[in-house]
Design a protein around this nucleic acid. Structure first.
Lengths: 142, 142
DNA sequence: CCCATCTATATGACACAGTCATATATAGCA
DNA sequence: TGCTATATATGACTGTGTCATATAGATGGG
């Protein structure tokens, strides 16, 4: 509908107020979920539902869509980055437990390099922005 | 085809070598072009073709697709973030000269806030990554 | 004059991550 | 029996970004 650096869906009051109540996921890093999953799984193998909670609590605002999470994990398995085994031990429904493959670790390193690079580019943007609005900084500080 | 933190299209040798010769634009910040355009136009009003060059020379690797650029500018105009006038003064084809509207400036501020936030999240990821691979750092330094 | 090239804007087709809604099944509890 | 929590999964859709291609004015060479 419209563009801009906004959260997913329509904001909390239905109508959107142009600047921060807007639409499409602006500012999000493409594929970042994959990187975060590789890192989490490298630290400790786990299954989807648990990863969902680890992702949620990691940062306050990092709510992740379950559908995306499961599809991403399956895709990563197809790509050979992770491997899964069914776990029927605990109570409740069976769980698909994932662990990282050597290729997954390689990919994680590639992600880290790429993210570092992206982070620098964002820094450059913010520097430029800072130069253009140095005087107006006080008003922003409210 | 596959996922990962990779450049656009198929890499330079046709076949892709899994980690850095892969496919989809991993690591890119969604909508970042809009933010960069708002900042450039705020610094100095300009037309599409010139912006293309300013974006290209800004960072070494920042090649931007012309189709995306023009469509993004038109979209931003529809959203009221920029305004355009035809310029038939110079030689060559007519140019559509853009300038930022007050709403565009507001949006730029929103973008800056969002990008700062994104940058912090990337930093957190890299910190976590660093902790997990502290020992292997030397090999990475090659 | 014709043709190639540079400048300048634009559209069509498509890939892909992410969003939202919904389906399915197991298990525990009231 | 119905309700909730756990757990995995699919369908439909949006929007950014990629790649190829179209169009047109201006310029200079053969």
């Amino acid at each position: 509908m419209c563009s801009g650096p906004c959260q997913g869906h329509q904001g909390q009051n239905g109508r959107h107020d142009r600047v921060d109540g807007c639409c499409a996921g602006g500012g999000r890093v493409r594929g970042f979920l994959q990187a975060r999953l590789l890192l989490l799984l490298e630290q400790e193998p786990d299954y989807g539902y648990a990863l969902l909670e680890r992702l949620g609590s990691e940062t306050g605002a990092g709510g992740v869509d379950p559908g995306l999470l499961y599809r991403t994990l399956r895709q990563m398995e197809r790509d050979g980055l992770v491997a899964s085994t069914w776990d029927t031990e605990g109570q409740g429904p069976a769980r698909r437990r994932y662990q990282v493959t050597p290729e997954g670790v390689e990919m994680l390193h590639a992600w880290a390099a790429r993210i570092d690079q992206t982070r620098r580019r964002l820094g450059e943007f913010l520097d430029q922005y800072g130069k253009s609005f140095e005087d107006r900084k006080q008003e922003e500080m409210v």
